[in-house]
Design a protein around this nucleic acid. Structure first.
Lengths: 206, 206, 206, 206
DNA sequence: GATGAATGAGCATTCATTCAT
DNA sequence: AATGAATGAATGCTCATTCAT
């Protein structure tokens, strides 16, 4: 007769203005569409980071404070949702590469920072071939690395992608700090210089 | 003395012993116990290799041609089953290290061969910390590497374990051949020499 | 981005909307929510009364004509469902105590009527300590008895609860009529006057 | 990867003489038949007392240190096993009635002692009608009470059986001491005198 | 366009019962 | 006569997906 411990209350990202009392929250109409989409991506980022890509989609909807149906309206399936999450990660990386004075080390710093923050991102780098969306995202990372790579380095972009996958594979551990330590050891083993592990300018989570 | 509410009614009032119909298959008796256990491990190896360590256990039982109950009789839980599977892999590695003339490259060849054969083995090497049994298996690999490592190499056993995890992380691809190609590229990037990718003398599957 | 191993495949690639075949019954939408909840409580009342509180919940769902999932949506666990059922019983008793001219005999009449109708109610009165909800329900009965008890009677509310439990313990038999007979004999043995065994004004089943 | 906590080791009541090592224990032949039967009854008494009459029969066999098959050889079904357990209880009661100087109070003392020791016995007294065996056992108790009843008492044997059932119904609580307290209160409420709660001369458990 | 209830297939696990040894 | 493994139906529970409102 105890309520299940793990039950999570909705964290209503979208405050309801609607009718009084315990009734169904008023339909906010299209006005909230964009807000809902963003809330879903943010929730999915957290949930996927914590529980892996298998996490129940219902948990994502709940954490986003959004109905199950809305999740499916915005994202046809799990892959679409995951892609949206990872798209932001990749965008961060592209942004880092575009910063003035950016070089391979600073970009790898951002890449590695994401690896230590998100299990899902690790999976993207490891298993990129499993879906068209995954391949596309990986291709964007590849292209960033290709542009950054200083000719002098001796590693082609393909090699760099492989190296990134290798480091991803090694990254694990209970805390971000521990994962950072492992990641840096892995890069050292590869003899690749990495800049400071950091989110790009305006990044939110990881 | 009441019929307990939760009790299970007999499945069939008229069990068939013979040939006809879809009746319950004959109970083969304890004679098949060892055979069943082996079949379960073999089936689990395949299923885990294909679908990862989270594959449905019912699929394992089905592929082994064994009842669900027998699976649980032989293996208390998923971890026990996985341990039995991976134990054979680790044993292969230990055997390879014990062969006359064995060295780090030949052992890594066996390790890598397993990586290209089994998703589950990759998971073991990557996420070794998830259970006592997993840690114990990983420790055995570590200890083999510690013994093999030529002092001259410059890499400690911890570094080698990390390297193995890195290669594991990179290994992916639709076919074993493709995965072998990737694994060899990864080792080259690390500057570590690997012997021929092969199962040890009498290995069965992988 | 891999298909999670444990994920569930869609049950049917071609869901039927229409009349024919054994396809999935149409989703009736939230309109039926309240109806479903009521149907579940009613079904649970019957099933628990017949088979005791350990009856399979699937049987409840089936009898209610409702999916398993809906049952779990409305009631987090077996206890929540049982509480909902027994809550109605207790409410009946409270209502009986509130009727004009009600006294201990008439309230005991209602209590006893429920005892002869529902195994589950008997269990509540006998084993009230098994859960917080059970204790709360029993406490409500206790409080009703405390209010009804004529000071002259010589029995405290605790004694009355014990007496109720004793009668509950004795009540058994194949038919309600038989159970009523036994219950009345039990009360007579205790020397306690009981009014007519009856449901309160607007009770539904029992 | 933790072993399930609740797993109980067999408490081998029957020491094995058999072959060396980990092989199947030698079949001890008919010599152990009687011993096994007794071990099963004893184990069932404990298991039923602890977990109720629904307890898994496998738990009984395990605790008896006996194969599942042997259980089924000795007892055709759950009811037969329960009957064997309760038969000993009833025999205790009959023995108590046969003691020199025995009277209704001392017999009720033994009856009540059993009620506070065994859930199963309570069930027998409450639900005696559910099986032929149950009815037969209850009839034996009835007959003992009929012989003991002092004419002066005013209660017929039927009334006494009902009273016993009523007290049974009230008996519950976490400890035997608590259950004794409740039972005595119940008898007092009925105005029936009870002797000291005790097992008969050579009783084993209860 | 949002909502959240409905649905039932699927997986893990348990356990009564049978049966070869 | 004992043993203990095999068997699979049954049950609890979860979750992807649909759909009326």
């Amino acid at each position: 007769m105890t309520k299940p411990a793990g039950s999570q209350e909705p964290q209503s990202a979208v405050p309801r203005a609607g009718a009084a009392g315990g009734g169904r929250p008023a339909n906010q109409g299209p006005r909230v569409a964009a807000r809902n989409r963003a809330a879903l991506v943010a929730a999915a980022r957290e949930v996927f980071a914590e529980q892996g890509l298998n996490a129940p989609l219902s948990a994502v909807a709940r954490r986003a404070g959004v109905g199950q149906g809305s999740l499916y309206r915005h994202f046809a399936d799990r892959v679409a949702l995951a892609s949206a999450v990872l798209d932001e990660n990749v965008r961060d990386i592209e942004r880092a590469a575009a910063e003035p004075g950016a070089g391979l080390p600073s970009v790898l710093g951002v890449v590695t920072w994401h690896m230590t923050r998100s299990t899902a991102f690790v999976d993207l780098l490891r298993i990129r071939g499993d879906s068209a969306e995954g391949r596309a995202l990986a291709a964007r990372v590849h292209s960033v690395l290709a542009r950054c790579r200083p000719a002098s380095h001796g590693l082609g972009a393909d090699d760099l992608m492989l190296a990134v996958a290798m480091v991803s594979g090694a990254v694990h551990g209970p805390t971000p700090a521990e994962r950072e330590r492992v990641a840096l050891r892995a890069w050292r083993l590869l003899g690749v210089e990495v800049g400071p592990l950091r989110p790009p300018a305006a990044a939110v989570e990881g």
